[in-house]
Amino acid sequence: MAIDINMIFKIAAIGILVSVLNMVLKHSGREEMAMMTTIAGLIIVLFMIINIINNLFSTVRTMFEIY
């Protein structure tokens, strides 16, 4: 994964997208769809965050020899 600035922009973009979709779906009356998009966006961002944290932990483990 490109561990760089565009990671942050991706997360921000997903956040904005989900909130906009939520508003649109809420106004058009589909509450449950809004909830689904929120959960979907959260899962995608969580995967990215878990990936990046895994990267951090493996780096620290190899550098400080914590086994």
Binding site: I3, I8, L46, I49, I52, T59
Partner: peptide, 15 residues
């Protein structure tokens, strides 16, 4: 999402 962004930034700066 604010928390996600702060975690990601912390990790990127460390890397």
């Amino acid at each position: 999402y604010g928390i996600h962004i702060s975690i990601a930034t912390g990790v990127i700066i460390f890397l």
